[in-house]
Design a protein around this nucleic acid. Sequence first.
RNA 1: UGUCCUGUGGUGUAAUUGGCAACACGUCUGACUCUGGAUCAGAAGAGUCCAAGUUCGAGCCUUGGCAGGACAACCA
Length: 565
Amino acid sequence: MSENSPEKEVVVKKNFIHQIIDEEINEGKNGGRVHTRFPPEPNGYLHIGHAKSICLNFGTAQKYNGLTNLRFDDTNPSKEDTEYVESIKEDVRWLGFTWDDREYYASDYFGKLFEFALKLIREGKAYVDNQDAETISNQKGTPTRPGIESPFRNRTIEENIDLFMRMKNGEFNEGEKVLRAKIDMASPNMHMRDPILYRIIKTPHHRTGDKWCVYPMYDFAHGQCDYWEGITHSICTLEFEVHRPLYDWFIDQLKEGDYRPRQIEFARLNLSYTVMSKRKLLELVKDHHVNGWDDPRMPTISGLRRRGYTPESIRNFSERIGVTKVDGIIDVALLEHSIREDLNKKAQRVMGVLDPLKVVITNYAEDRIEEMDAINNPENPDAGTRKVAFTREIYIERDDFMEYPPKKFYRLSPGTEVRLRYAYFITCTDVVKDENGNIIELHCTYDPASRGGNSPDGRKVKATLHWVSASENVKVEVRLYDRLFNDEDPAGHKDIDFKEFMNPDSLKILSGCYVEKFVENAKALDSFQFERLGYFNIDPDTRTGRLVFNRTAQLRDTWSKLKDK
RNA sequence: UGUCCUGUGGUGUAAUUGGCAACACGUCUGACUCUGGAUCAGAAGAGUCCAAGUUCGAGCCUUGGCAGGACAACCA
């Protein structure tokens, strides 16, 4: 942002991680270097919670003139795929961050990790266990009861090396043998009770193919990768807090100089009226409750992008919510505020009618077409003006008219005068109904002297309505989105499935909407403000001759609040 | 009957490291306006989980409680 920019910067408050870093820099730890990493597993699409982590990791490095690596945590071939690698890279880039050539994969380190495991075996700190998963699990004890040692715990080093090599060579089946660290089966921390280091998986890996059939566990890979990459701050979410002693144990076995990476945990993002776990999002996709990972109702980055959210709005949002160790739920209203704030500054204004009601201006010539001047963006004078065609027959929004208006309604009703934005004052003279009493059209008269929207006699009107010419327009489809769930915390109910709270009206498709011709050549993802309604962008589903708009967010609407009282 | 983490307005974060609770969103007024938008001005809303203690003074320190969360995958 340039120095002379009048725009408000979101105030960056110092979070607890930055405080830790400041202290470390004072102590001269790691030479004052800051190097972070964003480490997704390529087994699904990124969501707004990941965006928080991305902004934290890349943002922290930027703040301290450090670097951030992109590292794929691909230690489990049975869950991962290159499709996800590509979508993750696209999303991180779209958010505005770059990792230059520092794109790493845990699988890059399979060789070094194997050597490290061998070293632990030689030092008597790891052993091969023949027992099956259930037996090992039973021996592990419970959080309140210590575990018992495996009968294979004290094999000789030679035997362990031999067995581990044979595991690697594919001589055993999945589940037959694992490599475990020899730490402490009585530790109060479950993760220190001889954790599994390697397991046998015979599914081909998306990068290394069938070169390997033994794969390191997360705990045995993550910290070591951090170490080898020179990461100084390994920022992860709260559930890894209890893994930290193990993270440090491995680093102790590996460490040679003074440098050491530090794991710091923060609270993951929870948003009201949505779910955030990959498992639940996957369920919504698989069971067709939504139309894919990039459904505009999804909290995925691809969904938000398609919905019309901008990278800036998501970055501002991430900054605003802060970083702490307190588990909470952020109000989606804050996310919505972030996108409105951004689009208000940037979006091209346009008039569009979603629920059209025809208005005939009886004293306006039939063949006449006038080009009215309209402002493209009142927040940005440089955006200039455009022409909007005005004709005898136009459409207005159906709920901008009421035959019997309540007290505070000051839009159109029989006998009242309103302004058509950028056009004329009109007065309603007749309400035309069908045989069932439904209003099918309105007859109005216009005041020719009010051209442009002001009357020379200084007469005031209380309302300004948006409108679209009935002949000079583009007919479009508009998709209205609402929250996916009606409950603030759909996943927070013990005995009720989160899907019970799904909002049946989260998607409404309107096919008979009219927008001024200006949008005719808009491209996918272009954003507009439909005046008085909200922000809408072009959905990628759009094909030539058939524009499809997504509603990104509604404008704040004082009338709808009054109406409900 | 364990270990670790966390408790500040409705929500999310702050509080110069002990000096009398601030900011944002939301809510409610009012002004202005050719968007009932934006903008501007203002208001309400917490006495910081509880209790005791140290201190002239505690959201920050001490002790003891209470509440919530994480941990028992050959997932990450």
